[in-house]
Amino acid sequence: MNNLSELYGEDYAVTSEQPERYYWYKTAGGERFGVRKARLSDEEHMLLCTLFYHEVDSDMEDPVQQKWVSVLFDENLDVSTVTEKPVRYIHFHLKEVPSDFTEFKEAMIGLFSTEVIFLFKNEKEGLMVQENTEGEQLVEELEQMAAALTADFFIEMSLFVGQVIEDTTPSNLLNTYQTEKRWFTSGIKLIPSQLVFTQPAIVPAILFSEASKETIHYIKTLIEPVSEDAELLKSIRAYLEANLNITMASKQLYVHRNSLQYRVDKFIERTGIDVKSFKGAVMVYLALLTYELR
């Protein structure tokens, strides 16, 4: 700290009358300090962000939000109840810091305002705490939203959809946050092109990342007879992801259920794998995933 204070001299502060002129950071030990924005280049600011928690102004305003920040980012478990209701975290990670960060943040919050609590850990990552945990089309909606934000702001992001958290004691909230964040980090590393992650999608990616080329090739060949038929593979993927429910999958694909039924039969006929059975489905699912590996 002393070094930083020396380095930035008058531009370094612990408190200020004009907090908006400073970037505020917090050390792992909870010490807060600011450096005048005008003094910092983007790179320096980024560097400080990676070394310390960067506090974003509005996190400091709303008491509910403050509580969350305190538990999740400051790891302070000495707080009274944060929430009574079950929640779900949706973690986000931006590939770049938006040049118009405030505008971007406002847009993002605006998209959800009524339903979620927004927590920015720094200018690149944070999470949304969702109290309405119904998530029927959540992944699909988030994919669309992420794509829309990219189209409007030219910032790419990935998201991680967590599990519903029933036990809302501060320690479990923190614990879940940290665990999910680790999953998310692995996911981003292994499948950089993915928009929305869920735990079940990351598990096979981790397994594949440790498998040999031969193993992967071996799994790949399971569905070789149909590997050129992109339409069929897409249908089977949708069928598996709809929990082997033809009706649901055909809605998803916008095809008649009979044509999907026909495609599933064709798949079974050509590969000899009974994709309708649980074990067959698992096998086919893994084989399908190998086609997405680099």
């Binding site: 505008e103 847009a107 998209l111 959800f112 089309q137 909606e141 994919e143 669309q144 939203m145 992420a146 794509a147 829309a148 990219t150 189209a151 409007d152 702001f153 928009l195």
Partner: peptide, 24 residues
Amino acid sequence: MVFQNYALYPHMNVYDNMAFGLKL
């Protein structure tokens, strides 16, 4: 840009979706 994933805000109607980038 137009992507494979429909780039839409789920909570906005069609009009607002199209207007959003212009408001911005």
